[in-house]
Nucleic acid binder design. Structure first.
Length: 266
DNA sequence: ATGGCTACTCCTAGTAGA
């Protein structure tokens, strides 16, 4: 328990953000870090090989950088004010989907697992079945390498909206990619290992979204989905005092199509 | 919202995202 004392005493804010290219988004991410200064930031869709990751822009702000990326597609990174320990790059799920999609580290006593779950394309396609297999592989890997009794955050872009209240038009989206029953069940099985949806600890209403299509003015029409999540084990969730979606980051010049989610732990 | 953006690539067209 003393091992976790630092994070408990100081508190911790953990953010997750699918930036849709860290280099295309660099100015916005740097400005946002300057304003928000979360302790930990999990990035997805960095779309850059590790050697080309813009580390200096973040170290200037005091962040350590971990990158697990590849050219063009996928890629995850963790920015942290604390020194990362026990870094894990990738997991056996890459056997069913070879993209760079999982990066984990222990940060100030909290184990943080950053994931970019495969999109799946369309229901029924091979990519869809790979997505379901990937989620099952993630569940098995968590069960084998972690303990629900430890402080662990599983965050990222899950490409699954858990419930009707997480979708702007659930009847339109019913049984479609991101909202099909098998995807929701795969996510539910993962959560059943021992996780809490931290946003729902504090907010019950419908209409809280983290992604809006670039096309057709979807953001301004409120056509969004909640597919980015901060899940926490019970001991960490017990310290969660607030979770917010920073919708401002979906506005303005050259936004990502996802907004950041920020969870605060006392 | 049957794709009406955006970002990427040995780049000016095709692919993927969600």
């Amino acid at each position: 328990m003393r091992y976790h004392a630092a994070s408990r005493d100081l508190g911790m804010r953990i953010a997750t953000w699918n930036v849709n290219s860290v280099r295309a988004r660099l100015e916005r991410v740097v400005a946002w870090l300057g304003r928000q200064r979360p302790d930990v930031v999990c990035l997805q869709e960095t779309k850059v090989e590790d050697a080309l990751f813009p580390t200096e822009a973040f170290t200037e702000l005091g962040y350590r950088c971990l990158s697990y990326g590849q050219k063009t597609y996928n890629g995850v990174a963790i920015l942290s004010l604390a020194e990362p320990r026990e870094v894990v790059r990738g997991f056996p799920g890459e056997a069913v989907e070879p993209g760079k999609r999982l990066l984990a580290a222990r940060l100030a006593g909290v184990r943080v697992v950053n994931v970019y779950v495969p999109n799946g394309g369309e229901v029924g396609l091979p990519a869809y079945h790979a997505k379901l297999a990937w989620l099952e592989a993630l569940r098995q890997w968590l069960a084998a390498t972690a303990d629900p009794a430890e402080e662990l955050a599983l965050c990222g872009d899950f490409n699954v909206a858990p419930e009707d209240r997480d979708v702007w038009d659930p009847e339109l989206w019913r049984d479609r990619i991101l909202f099909s029953q098998p995807e929701k069940q795969a996510l539910a099985r993962l959560i059943a290992w021992g996780l809490v949806d931290t946003l729902r600890l504090h907010h019950q209403e419908s209409g809280i979204f983290t992604w809006w299509d670039y096309r057709a003015g979807a953001f301004h029409r409120g056509w969004g989905l909640r597919i980015d999540h901060v899940f926490a084990t019970a001991p960490l969730a017990a310290r969660c005092t607030e979770v917010v979606v920073d919708r401002n980051e979906r506005k303005g010049d050259k936004p990502s199509d996802h907004a950041p989610v920020i969870a605060t732990f006392a």
